[in-house]
Each structure stands twice: as C-alpha cells, then as structure tokens.
Amino acid sequence: MGIQIEYLPLTALDCQPPSWQDKVLGAVSFGESADDLKGRHLHGHIPEIYLNAPVLAGSQFASEALLDDALNTEISQPLISDKHGQIRYRLGEHLLFGVISLDESPELTSPGGANTTPALQQVTEIAYQQIFALLDVLGYTHVYRFWNYMADINGNGADTQAGLERYRQFNIGRKNVFLQVGRAQGHQLPAACALGLRSGPLSIAFLAGKTPSVAIENPRQVKAYHYPEQYGPLTPSFSRATLAQLGQQLCLFISGTASIVGHETLHAGDIVGQTNETLVNLEAVVSEANRIQGGPVFDLSNACFRVYVRHAGDLDRIRETLRNHFNRQVKAVFVQADICREALLIEIEATVQQTTIVHSA
C-alpha cells in the first residue's frame, strides 16, 4: 500500500509504457487550449481532470499523476476503473481517485420561479453528494485531498443571492453536503484547494482511502472552518493539510496556501510580500506536522509545488522569491488562475512524502 506521485509534461502522460499506465490511479493536468489535447491517447479508463488554464512556467510538471505503489508487489491486484453517476474513478485495494465535472446549466435556476438557489451552489451539492455516496458504498471513507476548480471564482453572477460571491456560493454547497453526511468536524476535513479558471464547468478531483488520516492546522492561521461571518454565510470546509500513513509512506497533502495570518489577507498589492508570507505558512504547516509526528519527518526540499498566479506579469518576481527562499531553483509548475479572495495574488500547494522503514519484530 502506498502512493507514488510523478510530475510530467502534459503530452508525456500517454507516451508512458502500459506497465506504467496500469499503475496510474488518475491525474490532474493543466493546459491553455484544446490544442494541448491533440494527439492525446491516455487510456480512457484512467480518470484525468484536464483544466483549461495557462501554464506560465514549469510545463515539465504540468501533469500530476498519482500511481498506486502497491502494484509494485507480485501479489497485488490490478486497478479497477468504473463510473458512478457522473464520477469516473479508479481504485486499488486501499486507494481511490475520482473526477467529476458538472456544467452550471441554466435550467438549475429559474429567476422569479421557485428555485432561486445559485447554479454553482446546486452543482456543488450534486457533485459532493455523488462523491460521498460513492465512497460510502465502496468503503473508501477517508478523504485525503480535494481539488476544486470553477469559472469566475470571484465573480457575482446573475443568479447570485444578494450579490454573493461565487466562491461563497461554492462554500455553501460544499458545507451543506458535509453537514448532511456528518463530516463537518474539523478532524474529518481533508486538504483542499479552490481556484478560479477563465471558463469551464465545476471540476473536482479527489483522493480517498481506507486508512484514517490526521488533519493538520497552521498555528499562524484561524482554522478555515472557524472563519468569521465576513467571509461568507457558511465557512470553507477544509484543513490546512492532511497527514496520512499509506503503507510505509507518510504523505503530507498541503492545501492551497496563501498570504493569510489569523484570518486576514496580508500584503495587499505586494506580490513579493505575499509570496514570502505564503512560504512562511507552508513552513509552519510542515513544522506542525513534524511536531505531531515527534520529529523532523517532513521538509519542503523534496516537494514539487503547484503555484497559482493571478497576474502573469508577477511570474518573474515570484520565481525569484522562491529561488531566494530555497537557495535553488525549485520544482514547480506555475499556473495562471484566480485565487479565492480578490486581494490574494498567489496560492501554493504541495504534497510532501517521507518513506518510513517498518521493522519486523
């Protein structure tokens, strides 16, 4: 049991040998246009979420593939691919990866009619209800990570109630389902991100398993699910990171992290200040995970970062700030996307792995 994460160029996924693709649970990939998909032959039974977002730099890391490391053993069973509702998923003995994309159909809202709930809130509820129904039926009840992407995340669409920002609509839909299924407690909340793209459906990818995980919080920040009401009627449903023991591997799934201290955005309009503050928060999450583990298990030196950049013109200063912080060029893909607060200019996520050796008695 375990997970192996590999980062590749978008076009390299389908060039891998069948023995490699047979181990792939799924992938999260970025590209700017339909041209990026030309010639793609990734096996249809592998769930992939493809996101229409410009890759500004680090295209060699544009696709994140998650492989079931248990398949390295001779007695392991092949992965199973299937569908549930609008979810495409693939599972092994201990891990499951799934994707779902739902359009915000105009039929979901009827101005002046009985249903005035924003379409984004509705499709969010539909998606998360399907996800948790699937996980409960199959027994993969511990979610380690969610990736959420939607169009115009900071916008106020025509179907909003009292001008409610679309990210807050999403939070209401997500929280409603977490409450319905009894997963709203802090220790149950997985790592997550929520980003805005230029266009496209609500797209969600998720990784789940059969082994309990530990929710990690950042001592420098208010827990997201305890945010004051100024950030929306219902609070975001995620932890700052998830710590999971997957076989002999310890994995730290770090949520999208930004320039927030307490619950307030810092360094408005200052991309260097926000990048540095984000790095301090990433280090704080890693330190908290190490404190819980009782030793220096994790560090960011072996991480591959996904850096979401609001303004493409900030790219050079962000890269220089990262290079100065780590005293080297980092492994990172830089993707143009909108962040969940309009004042935030950058968000960074990562997965950090540490292999532990299990000694027999």
Results as ranks from 00 to 15, higher is better:
Gly2Asn: 09
Ile3Leu: 15
Tyr7Asn: 09
Ala12Ile: 00
Pro17His: 08
Trp20Ser: 05
Gln21Met: 14
Val24Met: 15
Asp36Lys: 05
Leu37Val: 09
Leu37Gln: 11
Gly44Cys: 05
Asn52Pro: 06
Val55His: 02
Leu56Arg: 02
Phe61Ala: 01
Ser63Met: 07
Leu71Val: 03
Leu71Thr: 04
Thr73Ala: 12
Ser81Asp: 05
His84Asp: 13
Gln86Lys: 11
Ile87Pro: 04
Tyr89Pro: 01
Arg90Glu: 03
Leu96Tyr: 04
Ile100Tyr: 07
Asp103Gln: 03
Gly112Met: 06
Asn115Pro: 04
Glu125Ile: 03
Glu125Tyr: 08
Ala127Asp: 03
Tyr128Asp: 00
Gln130Met: 08
Asp136Pro: 05
Asp136Thr: 10
Leu138Val: 10
Leu138Gln: 11
Asn148Gln: 09
Lys175Gly: 12
Val181Ala: 03
Gly182His: 13
Ala184Tyr: 12
Leu207Ala: 12
Ala215Val: 07
Val222Leu: 10
Pro236Ser: 03
Phe238Pro: 00
Arg240Met: 13
Gln248Val: 13
Gln248Asn: 13
Ile254Val: 07
Ile254Ser: 04
Val261Leu: 10
His267Gln: 13
Ala268Gln: 11
Gly269Arg: 00
Gln274His: 06
Thr275Lys: 01
Asn281Gly: 09
Val285Ser: 13
Asn290His: 14
Gly294Thr: 06
Ser301Cys: 06
Cys304Gly: 09
Gly313Ala: 12
Asp316Tyr: 09
Arg317Trp: 07
Arg319Phe: 09
Arg319Ala: 10
Arg323His: 08
Val330Arg: 00
Ile339Gly: 05
Ala350Asn: 03
Gln354Phe: 10
Val358Leu: 10
Val358His: 05
Ser360Ile: 05
